[in-house]
Structure formats: structure tokens, C-alpha cells
Nucleic acid binder design. Structure first.
Length: 560
RNA sequence: CGGGGCGUAGCGCAGUCUGGUUAGCGCACCUGCCUUGGGAGCAGGGGGCCGGAGGUUCAAAUCCUCUCGCCCCGACCA
């Protein structure tokens, strides 16, 4: 491909709207342009990258027996009404009406439509298992699109769905997807982890996410380097280091106007870990007192799973319910239901005394109050792995895929049933599996770049090789360059030929910016010695090879 | 949806507080010369409803009101 025939609008300066590395580089290197918040145009270079990623995904999906199909992006509402998601999902769903006022929506995901198809086409256990997938557009009216192509309102997703006659079949397809996903990310050159995740509104019991470590990530994951335990912070379990037991009498202590753990801790000369943090929450079922250790944070997602939707009580509500202002509340002397973090099963603590300007020392959870024990606190860096006790690490990660065991959550309401050997009608057992190709591309950039630009993994680069003739007007330079170009094309390589009438510096800068893995530099200096230069973008290492050996040597370096 | 920031040429910005020539600078772009191993140089040139609408004023990029858009933090994220 000739550079002058391709739209590669590189920029010398980074547009000010970009914050994350991948966003900056994709804009500067001429890969994407933004149409509106969360809506991106993929220019030729980016489209080539996505094409290559999708091809890898296709190969691996086909390999596990999945069949590619294509579903509409525009959906009638009634299918979504049957599963209830038309009502459960709020502003995230784009809704519209067709000309006859029928309710419609744009595809956020395709569980409903895939299950609709299965309900019509699957009759017998002999039809199962089936695995269908597509690589296709999803639309979600995100509350806050961000970080360039990492979180957009319209994006392409590979989504597949498995249909089985029983759980055993589901397990098998789940495992196959798990393995295929590992191969996909590996082939795309990503560092990644598989973590336990919260199924959320998808439903079902088990789910995993695939996470690519990057400071640009929106999620946090907890990882144990020793035994491999890995989980989304939303449900990660950890054991804090044991507390040194301090003897304390059970007594009130005057703490005038000291409301925060930090204030009381420094007043009493104790660490924050010897305090009980009491938080009054208003849930649908009424007020709940949630308790974590003074140096811990209540994890809202964990809490929500236990008590449902909740909000913190207002100042007036705290006084109304517990009779004392927020800084002095504690777990004793009232009948508000209490949930306490498992960490608090051991130890003696200081807590609010439920009396203005007083705290209570020597509180023993389980003795002085009876809570419901749950895991409520956010795992912290350095706490111990629940499985092997080694210290945990926390990493920022980009979610690049997820897999869910759905069970019959969709097949039952949509009546996707089959007859088993015994002639009984059973709901199909389902799984769903998603990968975001654009996120793979962005994560690849986040993980592989330097000050000069992108360093694409060879497997997903827009081109394999970029040829850089420094003096295209010189006959010799042009002839040699074109000959190498043509031979590389013949041998099946994707090659970009920088035929622009630009000075060498401009070509070098742009080549480094767009990040094609192998650069071939052909200049007068080398030609006089009868050599051309092969440069690896990754480490800028350069080797000089004889003109007549050039093609062979380039093919060795660019082995993909 | 809460908090913060920003809208002036394709990109990066100055000018706004304190209203007053024809709205400026760098890069990019066009023409010519020159140059060619890490974003050259010289000369000439094109490009603006100062996000939009109202208002105040003799006079508005600048002050006031409303509005639209974009980014960041948080909430949310099927």
C-alpha cells in the first residue's frame, strides 16, 4: 500500500481532549477521529488492526465449533419485555419507536435475540449443543464515555452463546471458551489475567472476566502471585494481618466533638485498626448498620449484594433512628439490624457509644452485639490471600472480555425448550461470552508503546513492514525500494510504502508513531555501501543487510 | 446524575479579569526557490459567524442571562 494513497492523518501535537495513552496515540497517529462523546470513526489503519484482531477471534471461535451468524442491531421491545430487561435496564438502553409506534431498542447485547432464535429452531436434544457467535455492533448509552475507545457508546463486540441440554454441556462449552479466550489474548500479544467476577444483571451463578493490566484501566483486580488467586476487587476476599491484642476495659470514654475515626484514634493514641466504623444505611428493607474496621473501607458492591439497593442515611435520619449524631453511633443498645465484616470476629475495639461526645472502649463483637457476619471490606494491597496467605497485589486493569454461565435465565422466559431422550420438555442451558476487539487494540497500545509512539504486537499491526525510501526521487533509491516492496508483497506480507516527498526526519517520526513492527530504511548512505537497514520498532535495533539479501533477511525478522 | 475544567483557523494556544484599530502566534496547508539520515530554511499566500441564542452598551471574543458541546473526578456500567 502506498502511503500517499492512504488516509493517515498524523498530528504533531496531541489534541487536548485526550488523556489516556491509547487515546492520545490513536489520535496522533491517525487511527481514529471522534464524532461525538463515545462515538469514534475508525480510519484505515485502525480498521486494519481491528480486522486482524477479528480474524484471530474468528479462527479461535471456529476452532471450538462456534458458528458465525449476524443478528439485527434494531430490536423489537417485546422480546426484551419477556425477560424483564426492558424494565430493569434504565437509561443505558437506547429506545425508539418505529413508524407504527411500536417500541424498539438498539442492541446492548444479544441474549434475548439469540434465545429467541433458539426457541424457534431447537426442538430436540439431538439439535444440541449449539454455539453461535457474531462480531457486531452494540449500543449502550453510557453515563460517562471515557478514555477514547476504551469506553464508548457504540462498539463492536464478539459475542457468542452456547446452548446445551444440561449443566455438563454448559461446563464443557464454558471451558472451551475459556481456553479459546486465553489463546486469543495471547496471540494478540497482551498480558492478561482471568479473574472471578460478579455476574451482575447478566444473571447466572458463575462469571469470569479477562483483564489486561494497565494504568488506564477502570477496574481493580486483586492478584496473588503465589497461588494465582485473582479476582475483581468487587468480590475479592482478603485477610488483614492479625491485630496485636490490646487489653481494654468495657467502659465509656469522653471524646468531646470527636467524630471521625482518625480524630478519636489520635486522641486515644491507638491505631485506626482498633476502631469499629459504623455506617447507617437505608436499604429497601429498612435501616441497616454496616460495620467495618476503622482502617477499612466498606465495599458498596459487596454490601449491595447482601442488602440490595441502599443509600447512606442522612444526618437527620441518623439522629431519628439511633438518637445520636453520626460521629458517635455504635452497634450497642438498639435493635437496628447489623451486618459486620468478617474481619471483626477477632479482637477488642473502640466504637461510638451511642451517646453524644462518648465512645465505648473494650467492645467485643459477638459478645456486646450480635451481627450478621459477611465480607464487607475492600481488599487492600498487602493483605493476605484467602487461599495461601501470601500477600496480595492490586492492579488497575482493562476488562477485555467476560464469560457467563447463564443457566436458564433467558431460555425459560423466552420458552427456548427441547425434548430430552425421555420425551420431557426442558429449558436449554445457556452461556454467553463476550470480547471487545477495540479494547484489545487499546490495551495493546497501553501495554506496548514508548515516547515516540505505538509498538504494535506483530500479530495485530496494521502492516507487517514499512518501507522508508529516504530519497524517493533518486532512481537507484526508488528502484531498490520498489523491488523490495514488490517481492515482500509477493511473499504475502502486508507492506506500507512511504512514497511521500518528505524529509527523512518526518518519515522516521511518523513511522515510529504509527508503530509498524518492522521498518526498512533505504537511503543513499546505505546504497553507496550496497546495503539497506532493517529496524525493529520495538527496540530500534538496526541491522544492515546487502541489497540482494534484503528480502530474505526482512522475512526472517518479520516472521509473523 | 453530582463536582470541576474548557469551547477563538485542521492541531496546539494567546487575547477575556480591566469592552475600543482590520482578532493574533506556532505548527499544518497552498505557490516558488532551496534542502534531503530524526518533525529544515527563505519568500509569498489561503483559511475565523471568537460554540449558539438573547441582552447591556456609541462599541462585545471580552460584561450579563439562557443554551449546546467536549474533557476530567465521582455515581452508574447488562
Amino acid at each position: 500500500m502506498l502511503y500517499t494513497k492512504m488516509l493517515i492523518p498524523t498530528l504533531r501535537e496531541t489534541p487536548s481532549e485526550a488523556e489516556s495513552i491509547s487515546h492520545k496515540l490513536l489520535l496522533r497517529a491517525g487511527y481514529v477521529r471522534q464524532l461525538a462523546s463515545g462515538l469514534y470513526i475508525y480510519l484505515p489503519l485502525a480498521w486494519r488492526v481491528l480486522g486482524r484482531i477479528n480474524e484471530i477471534i474468528r479462527q479461535e471461535m471456529n476452532e471450538i465449533g462456534a458458528q458465525e451468524i449476524s443478528m439485527p442491531v434494531l430490536h423489537p421491545a417485546d422480546v426484551w419485555m419477556k425477560t424483564g430487561r426492558w424494565y430493569e435496564i434504565k437509561d443505558e438502553m437506547f429506545r425508539l419507536k418505529d413508524r407504527s409506534e411500536r417500541d424498539m431498542c438498539l442492541a446492548m447485547t444479544h441474549e434475548e435475540i439469540m434465545t429467541w432464535l433458539a426457541s424457534g429452531e431447537i426442538r430436540s436434544y439431538r439439535d444440541l449443543p449449539q454455539v453461535w457467535y457474531q462480531i457486531q455492533t452494540k449500543l449502550r448509552d453510557e453515563a460517562r464515555p471515557k478514555s477514547g475507545i476504551l469506553r464508548t457508546r457504540e462498539f463492536i463486540m464478539k459475542d457468542s452463546y452456547s446452548f446445551d441440554k444440561d449443566n455438563e454441556g454448559l461446563e464443557k462449552n464454558y471451558k472451551l471458551h475459556e481456553e479459546a479466550y486465553h489463546r486469543i489474548y495471547k496471540r494478540c500479544g497482551l498480558r492478561f489475567f482471568q479473574v472471578d467476577s460478579d455476574p451482575g444483571m447478566m444473571g447466572g451463578a458463575t462469571a469470569h472476566e479477562f483483564m489486561a493490566p494497565s494504568p488506564a484501566g477502570e477496574d481493580d483486580m486483586v492478584i496473588c502471585d503465589s497461588c494465582g488467586y485473582a479476582a475483581n476487587l468487587e468480590l475479592a476476599v482478603s485477610t488483614p494481618p492479625a491485630l496485636k491484642r490490646i487489653a481494654m476495659e468495657y467502659e465509656d470514654v469522653s471524646t468531646p466533638a470527636m467524630k471521625t475515626v482518625a480524630e478519636v484514634a489520635s486522641f486515644l493514641g491507638l491505631g485506626k485498626e482498633y476502631f469499629l466504623k459504623s455506617l447507617l444505611l437505608i436499604a429497601d428493607r429498612g435501616p441497616v448498620l454496616a460495620m467495618v474496621r476503622g482502617d477499612h473501607e466498606l465495599h458498596e458492591a459487596k454490601c449491595k449484594k447482601i442488602i440490595g439497593e441502599f443509600r447512606p442515611a442522612t444526618k437527620d435520619e441518623v439522629i431519628g433512628i439511633l438518637g445520636v449524631e453520626a460521629g458517635f453511633i455504635g452497634p450497642m443498645d438498639h435493635d437496628v439490624s447489623i451486618i459486620a465484616d468478617d474481619t471483626l470476629k477477632e479482637g477488642i475495639y473502640v466504637s461510638g457509644a451511642n451517646k453524644s461526645d462518648y465512645h465505648k472502649k473494650g467492645v467485643i463483637p459477638g459478645k456486646h452485639f450480635k451481627p450478621e457476619w459477611r465480607d464487607l471490606h475492600s481488599a487492600k494491597e498487602g493483605e493476605s490471600c484467602p487461599h495461601c496467605s501470601a500477600p496480595l497485589r492490586i492492579e488497575k486493569v482493562i476488562e477485555i472480555g467476560n464469560i457467563f454461565k447463564l443457566g436458564t435465565k433467558y431460555s425459560e422466559p423466552l420458552n427456548a425448550v427441547f425434548l430430552n431422550k425421555e420425551g420431557e420438555e426442558k429449558p436449554v442451558v445457556m452461556g454467553s461470552y463476550g470480547i471487545g476487539p477495540a479494547r484489545i487494540a487499546a490495551a495493546a497500545i497501553e501495554q506496548n508503546h514508548d515516547q515516540d509512539g505505538i509498538i504494535w504486537p506483530e500479530t495485530i499491526a496494521p502492516f507487517d513492514i514499512e518501507i522508508i525510501p529516504l530519497n524517493p526521487k533518486d532512481d537507484k533509491c526508488a528502484t531498490v525500494s520498489l523491488e523490495i516492496y514488490n517481492k515482500l508483497i509477493e511473499s504475502g506480507k502486508e507492506v506500507l510504502y512511504d512514497d511521500r516527498d518528505e524529509r527523512p526526519g518526518v518519515k522516521f517520526k511518523d513511522a515510529d508513531l504509527i508503530g509498524i513492527p518492522c521498518q526498512v530504511v533505504i537511503g543513499m548512505k546505505g546504497l553507496k555501501e550496497g546495503v539497506v537497514e532493517i529496524k525493529k520498532r520495538k527496540n530500534k535495533s538496526t541491522i544492515k543487510v546487502k541489497i540482494e539479501d534484503a528480502v530474505e533477511e526482512i522475512l526472517k525478522v518479520s516472521h509473523y
